[in-house]
């Protein structure tokens, strides 16, 4: 089962993709995706209901969040009420340790995305400030990466012993599926996704 774990819709300030258009694009282009996760910037969307679209297109649509920290951007899967009260999702300067600790305490998974990106990626911060504890999963394939960034992400993740996943980071419809994650077991819910990521029963894929 293959899911794109990093997508943005019009709910993100720089997103220009409607969720239904993602669905029809996936089907029209026959992309090898079974679903995708919406990771809106600095927020958790607890109101939108995509069950009708899931039924219409036979796709799994899950919701997560992309938050910002002093070590770059971090995807958080399994957001719940406890977690949204643990730190301020809207801030751009959350301490990454706070985010990682809160996610673990609340049964969620927090994973730095595009870690190989200069200036804003996790590993650029490592060069300046040194590594931190608590990271065990990073996005090694990002659909928006510039040449060389994914290679750096993969190499550094390997050096630090981090597991990897993939996501397109799509902000427009036609970019969905550039990178994704393949799971060993069926994923039917956000709980399944969190369990699979925690267990490492998945691998990053790139389709660029």
């Amino acid at each position: 089962m293959i899911l794109d774990l990093h997508t943005h819709s019009v709910r993100s300030d720089d997103g220009r993709a409607k969720v239904d258009n993602y669905c029809q694009w996936i089907r029209k282009k026959e992309l090898p995706l079974d679903g995708f996760v919406l990771t809106e910037h600095r927020q958790y969307d607890d109101t939108s209901d995509y069950r009708d679209l899931e039924d219409q297109y036979g796709l799994l649509i899950l919701k997560a969040s992309e938050v910002e920290t002093d070590y770059g951007h971090v995807l958080v899967f399994g957001v719940n009420e406890d977690l949204t009260r643990s730190f301020n999702f809207t801030r751009v300067d959350n301490h990454i340790g706070d985010v990682l600790t809160a996610a673990r305490r609340c049964g969620a998974v927090a994973a730095p995305c595009h870690p190989g990106r200069p200036n804003v990626g996790l590993f650029a911060h490592y060069e300046r400030k040194g590594p931190i504890d608590g990271v065990d999963l990073v996005e090694i394939y990002n659909g928006g990466s510039r040449p060389g960034e994914d290679e750096m992400s993969e190499a550094e993740a390997d050096r630090f012993g981090y597991r990897g996943f993939g996501g397109s980071d799509s902000h427009i419809v036609s970019r969905i599926g550039y990178a994704a994650t393949e799971f060993d077991d069926p994923i039917r819910s956000i709980e399944d996704l969190v369990s699979a990521l925690q267990a490492g029963r998945c691998r990053a894929r790139t389709f660029r």
Binding site: R16, N21, H171, I172, V173, S174, R175
Partner: peptide, 18 residues
């Protein structure tokens, strides 16, 4: 609806839009 992208000389996406 049309997705738009503009790439620079290194193939990096400089502009996205619709």
């Amino acid at each position: 609806e049309v997705d738009l992208t503009m790439l620079n000389h290194e193939g990096v996406t400089s502009v996205i839009g619709t």
